[in-house]
Amino acid sequence: MIVGLTGGIGSGKTTIAKMFHKLGVSIYIADIEAKKLMHTSVEIKEELIAAFGEETYIDGELNRSYLSNIVFNKPEELKKINAIVHPRVGRHFKDWYAERSEEKYVIKEVAILFENDSYKQCDKIITVVAPIEERFRRLLLRDKTTKQAIQNRMNNQWSDERKTELSDYVIQNVDLTKAQEQVARIHQELIDLCDKI
């Protein structure tokens, strides 16, 4: 079973993913794998350079700040990057999942699970939510960025309300102890569900 895990930027998806991992669940973090592929895939490098120019890579390393400046103010440019990278991440995930087919379920953590339609490949979906002020606080601390830069990134994602409507489970990630309790309950429900299949 494939369980999609998503949530808006700053909701704490990765923290929740780690809680599931501690329970023995294999986790695929799409953003991390996408970054690896952007560094290692010759095809991706060539297509990104063709789309955004030679400055996309400096000495073979992805020029993240250059791409970020292009992307976060222009949604159509973000779509171009996603069209290059996401199909490769999708294929990479299929190979990764094939190696874990004996496991009851795995989690695929994707920030834009709904936005890029990859939720359609999931059997169940968990959305992590947190109050907007808390998300801003976390991101300002973590990324040393501005509120406007955070807002620009949020504008490229669906609202929590829209995501939760399509989700099987919603985890409120404000208090860590309560979040762990929610994770343990959902984990048990998923295990029970897999046993019935």
Rank of each mutant, 00 (worst) to 15 (best):
T15H: 12
I49V: 14
S41F: 08
K104S: 07
K18V: 13
Y57M: 04
F93S: 03
I70C: 10
T146Q: 13
Q180R: 03
E133H: 06
I70M: 05
K108W: 12
I81R: 01
F20M: 04
R91H: 05
G60A: 11
T56N: 00
V42Q: 05
T56W: 00
K80L: 01
K196H: 03
K104E: 12
I132A: 13
R137L: 12
I27L: 04
Y105F: 11
S118K: 08
A50D: 15
D31M: 08
C122R: 12
K18D: 13
A130E: 11
A130D: 14
R153G: 07
G7I: 02
Y119Q: 08
S68Y: 09
R138W: 14
I186C: 08
H187R: 10
I58Q: 08
M154G: 09
D195S: 15
C194M: 14
L140G: 02
I197K: 05
R142M: 09
Q172H: 11
R135V: 09
T164P: 03
R162K: 09
K13G: 04
V25R: 01
A111F: 00
L5H: 02
Y169K: 13
L139C: 15
V170G: 06
S167N: 08
Q151W: 05
V25N: 07
E181Q: 10
I32F: 03
D117V: 11
C122E: 02
S26I: 04
A34Q: 06
K120A: 11
A34V: 06
P131C: 05
N63S: 11
G24C: 13
G10R: 00
Q148T: 13
D31W: 05
G60S: 15
H86P: 10
G90V: 07
V85A: 04
M1D: 01
A130W: 11
Q148V: 12
E103V: 01
N73W: 05
S41D: 15
V85M: 05
I132R: 14
V110P: 03
K80P: 01
K22F: 08
L78I: 03
E133M: 10
I125Q: 12
Q121I: 07
M1V: 06
W96K: 04
L139Y: 11
I16G: 01
A17P: 09
R185C: 06
Q188S: 15
L37G: 04
E134Y: 03
V89R: 03
H92I: 01
S68T: 09
S118H: 10
N69K: 15
T146R: 11
P75K: 11
E161Q: 07
R142G: 09
L23K: 15
R91N: 07
Q148N: 06
A30S: 15
E55P: 14
L139Q: 13
E103M: 08
V170H: 02
E76I: 13
A98K: 14
R138K: 13
G8Q: 08
G90N: 06
I81H: 02
V110N: 04
G8V: 07
V89M: 05
E61I: 15
I16V: 12
E103F: 10
S11Y: 01
K13H: 03
D59K: 15
I125T: 11
L5F: 06
I2R: 10
K79E: 02
